[in-house]
Nucleic acid binder design. Structure first.
Length: 200
DNA sequence: GTTCTAGAAC
DNA sequence: GTTCTAGAAC
């Protein structure tokens, strides 16, 4: 099994498993939750940007991306549709949601079990974003875009995961995702990304 | 995934 | 002295 499948599992790792099994039990805490037979869309409980959703597969066999095979490609496309449905519901009345301002992808080594797609706006403006691991999990190759995962499945039938390599990405020095400048510390990074538009 | 906190960095 | 990071949590 993938995800956190090595050794013993802690209770906190199964919060998404529980929500996938019985979503209506959690409707009260997340009234805007989307649910169908195969997929749910939740607000991330500790959002790392102004908008941060989790599109969670309800397939009990899918704990992480290493469980994916070619046969799951239609399921992934459906998860993408659910993500777009959520974003179209939150777009402002006078303008379209700019999809390029969102990142849609998976963590290579997820902390929580049950396959979940992150859909996150790229402002990364959130008090819940606190340290380097948070930052690098969305802005380095630790973050695997949905399109890349689908491409790997089409080519090779699975998604190769190198644990040591992935853990290395989380230790990269902090760097602005727009202008690529190195940033030293988290408070400096936050101050910078509040203004940076990506130019030189 | 988070919380807590020791001690490094300044 | 304060800010900030990074490792433990049975």
């Amino acid at each position: 099994a993938g995800g956190g499948g090595r050794g013993s599992r802690h209770g906190w790792q199964d919060v998404l498993v529980q929500k996938a099994q019985n979503p209506e039990r959690f409707r009260e805490e997340d009234p805007d939750m989307l649910v169908d037979d195969t997929t749910i869309v939740l607000k991330d409980m500790y959002p790392k940007a102004r908008q941060h959703y989790l599109v969670v597969s309800r397939d009990p066999e899918l704990l992480g991306i290493s469980d994916l095979r070619r046969k799951h490609i239609p399921h992934l496309h459906h998860m993408q549709k659910m993500a777009e449905q959520r974003l179209s519901a939150v777009k402002s009345p006078d303008g379209e949601i700019a999809l390029e301002r969102f990142r849609m992808g998976f963590h290579t080594l997820p902390s929580l079990c049950q396959l979940h797609l992150h859909v996150i706006s790229d402002d990364f403006d959130s008090v819940c974003l606190k340290h380097k691991k948070h930052w690098n999990s969305f802005t380095t190759p630790f973050f695997k875009p949905l399109a890349e995962v689908v491409a790997r499945l089409e080519e090779g039938g699975e998604v190769a995961v190198n644990q040591e390599e992935a853990e290395g990405y989380l230790k990269w020095d902090l760097r602005c995702h727009r202008c690529q400048r190195g940033m030293g510390k988290i408070p400096q990074l936050k101050e910078h990304i509040a203004h940076c538009t990506g130019g030189e």
